[in-house]
Amino acid sequence: MTTAGTAPAKDPQRRAAWAELATDYVHEHGLIGLSLRPLAAELGTSNRVLLYHFGTKDQLVADVLRTSNERSVAEVAALAPSEDLRSAVYDLWTVMEGDRCSRIYVEAAALGLFGREPYATAVQDANTLWIAGLIAHLTKSGVDPVVAERAAHVIDAAFMGFQLSLGPDGSLPERRSVDDLADAVAALA
């Protein structure tokens, strides 16, 4: 119940549902240049309703980044254990190659790089969750935990670089890059 002059309590479940739908929209249309009016129209609501639930466009984007990252981490968690460290690179790349979640991350990371909030914090949180997901997959695959942590950071850095090299069709122009990464990471063991 509300009293005069107070707004009703925001619904966290509704906000999470909007974040899921907004994430789907951003996966299709991209993050850079996102406008609330077309997003709201696509979701069958108004930009005012979105702002009510998220507070600001930046906070909505931070929630989209978080939702998108959680989807990628869930894909990694769903992978069967890899045969060895070298094959883990290929298995993990199957999740990343052409993955819209990682493309959104790259766009948000560009904004966060300059310290712009909430992007800087959302990207840092996403990094922490993502690295933990990589380490979990590697250890599930029988990799020593110390090696898994080192390998996860190398894999992550290379994959981010690969994302910047993807062609318009989402494929890596130099497939040999993944082979070279797999060789380098396998040498860590």
Rank of each mutant, 00 (worst) to 15 (best):
167 G>Y: 00
27 H>Q: 13
133 G>A: 10
16 A>K: 12
94 T>C: 07
158 A>H: 05
107 E>L: 04
184 A>I: 07
170 G>I: 04
115 G>W: 05
90 Y>S: 11
46 S>D: 09
65 L>Q: 03
67 T>I: 04
26 V>C: 14
58 D>C: 04
169 D>T: 06
52 Y>L: 11
32 I>E: 11
114 F>G: 09
133 G>R: 13
97 E>S: 11
121 T>F: 01
94 T>N: 13
70 E>K: 13
83 E>F: 00
88 A>M: 02
127 N>P: 00
51 L>R: 14
25 Y>N: 09
180 D>M: 13
32 I>S: 14
20 E>F: 01
48 R>L: 06
5 G>Q: 13
71 R>Y: 02
139 T>M: 08
9 A>V: 07
92 L>A: 07
110 A>Y: 02
94 T>Q: 15
92 L>K: 03
34 L>V: 08
165 S>E: 14
160 M>P: 00
138 L>I: 03
65 L>F: 01
123 V>A: 04
150 R>P: 00
62 A>K: 10
89 V>C: 10
167 G>R: 13
177 S>Q: 12
47 N>A: 15
45 T>I: 04
19 A>K: 04
156 D>Q: 11
20 E>C: 04
159 F>I: 01
157 A>I: 00
144 D>Y: 02
108 A>E: 06
127 N>S: 08
163 Q>E: 12
59 Q>G: 03
82 S>Y: 02
26 V>D: 09
93 W>H: 10
20 E>L: 11
64 V>D: 06
173 P>A: 15
147 V>L: 05
73 V>Q: 07
178 V>K: 06
172 L>D: 11
163 Q>V: 06
8 P>Q: 14
31 L>S: 08
185 V>Q: 06
104 I>V: 14
93 W>G: 02
136 A>P: 00
131 I>M: 08
117 E>T: 06
49 V>A: 15
74 A>R: 14
81 P>E: 14
142 G>N: 12
25 Y>H: 15
106 V>F: 03
32 I>N: 12
189 A>Y: 01
140 K>P: 00
28 E>M: 09
108 A>R: 07
100 R>Q: 12
49 V>C: 05
127 N>G: 11
168 P>Y: 04
113 L>E: 09
26 V>T: 15
175 R>E: 13
119 Y>V: 05
76 V>D: 02
114 F>I: 13
54 F>W: 07
75 E>A: 15
20 E>M: 05
59 Q>W: 01
21 L>E: 12
138 L>V: 04
24 D>S: 13
187 A>C: 05
154 V>E: 10
161 G>A: 10
103 R>M: 12
82 S>M: 05
89 V>T: 08
177 S>E: 14
4 A>R: 14
175 R>C: 01
96 M>W: 04
85 L>C: 08
47 N>C: 03
